[in-house]
Design a protein around this nucleic acid. Structure first.
Lengths: 231, 231
DNA sequence: CGCGGCTTTGATGTTCATCAAGTAAAGTGG
DNA sequence: CCACTTTACTTGATGAACATCAAAGCCGCG
């Protein structure tokens, strides 16, 4: 089960210099009093689509997925959130309810800051608000660019993308363990589970990667990049 | 050619109550001194992908398209901007260069506000910044939701979407003139031009719409809605 | 009046989802 | 701890959805 952590003060938080560097001691203390840090085990739900939004969420550790459930009960993954990301995206400012369900795909620590407190601080401190806007718009812009990118490519290009994404953006390594199932990859890049598997096998036969269950090792990054570029 | 208009003061602008209602007289005057209103004829380019961002743009009148050019020289339309929209999306806060090219698809009036002035006001006035954040995040959120929506549907559902979009969101009428070519529709909803035409013809044969060149008349909105819902 | 762009329809081929069937892995309850 | 169930993974075969190619009519424009 998830559990509330015995949290340290925001002063010591590494993210202070990231998102909250325009705040003074007093403001940080206020946030500190109105924040909760929660630990989630892999697989646990952090928040559900449709729930009222009461907190601004950002990821301290781990990895999460953002997903929507469509009418036909099919789940669609919008994006993978990594540490430092504002995993509630921008909906938290424009909507009353969460637009997506957020689930931990690795053991994660999420910091919940009461949205009212955050808004209050933004209203009082324009520099903070502006800084915050810049950071959060980058996340949203990224999501849009990524979705466009994926949709213009065909299957081999999409698989190349996802491999490069985990290798370069998340793990910074040529060998890594996939934090998601084949099915989840399919939901993330809009294709069938079978074809995810098929194309991974193709890449293996082509000597681009090595596979052993969830373990992936990229043997030829250049070739992968080429497949990606060709679409 | 586009031309700079003999602009009125921001005080009288109908959008004052929309985006700038948290600003006082002094601030409005400052914006007024640092804004330019420009008229564009249908087809003219408002800004180009890659250009440095110097202004915050919003659309006063008309209709525009936001598009990216990919490596293979294929153009992809991200969204259609309508009056009141912040047509620069959020890139203006997170990026140095415009991420998209913006082109007028109807005679349009765009208001250019110097970004530095806007940022300065946001830094000084947190309430304004917060208000602004709420409004602009709604636009970005919309784009994300729409893209997801379109990509989960197949062709008939996408054409239904685009017809409903123009009918309900833009023109508020059952009969209207399409402001875009078949090709542009294709670029907007990710399909081939030929299939846009084919499916429009199908809809005509099914008695859902009437077509006469760019003139579209929706005969059976319920049926259209059904096609959309089925995907 | 001829050229290029937009529109339209038909024919063809490719990409991809779906179905089917089987193996392996991972929970679950007695 | 073992039978049992479920979930994940894998491969092949089939068919549907869709892009692409081709050809022709149309319209606006220099």
């Amino acid at each position: 089960m998830s559990k509330i952590l015995n949290t340290s003060h925001c002063n010591q938080c590494v993210y202070r210099t990231w998102a909250f560097n325009k705040l003074d001691q007093e403001a940080l203390s206020l946030i500190n009093q109105h924040k909760t840090e929660v630990f989630y085990r892999k697989g646990e739900v952090i928040c559900r689509q449709g729930e009222n939004i009461a907190h601004f969420l950002y990821l301290r550790k781990g990895l999460v997925k953002l997903l929507t459930t469509e009418k036909n009960d099919r789940e669609h993954i919008i994006s993978i959130g990594k540490p430092l990301d504002f995993i509630g995206l921008l909906s938290i400012f424009s909507k009353q309810q969460h637009a997506y369900t957020i689930t931990a795909i690795e053991d994660s620590v999420v910091c919940f800051v009461e949205i009212d407190v955050l808004k209050q601080l933004m209203a009082q401190n324009g520099e903070f608000a502006l800084d915050f806007l810049e950071k959060s718009s980058r996340v949203a812009d990224d999501v849009i660019a990524t979705r466009l990118n994926i949709n213009t490519k065909q299957l081999r290009g999409r698989i190349a993308y996802i491999l490069m994404f985990f290798s370069s953006h998340i793990y910074n390594a040529m060998a890594f363990e996939l934090p998601v199932s084949r099915k989840e990859i399919a939901q993330l890049i809009d294709m069938s589970t079978e074809n995810v598997i098929r194309i991974l096998s193709e890449f293996r036969k082509d000597g681009i990667i090595e596979i052993e269950g969830k373990l992936i090792k990229i043997l030829d990054y250049q070739k992968l990049q080429k497949v990606y570029d060709l679409g």
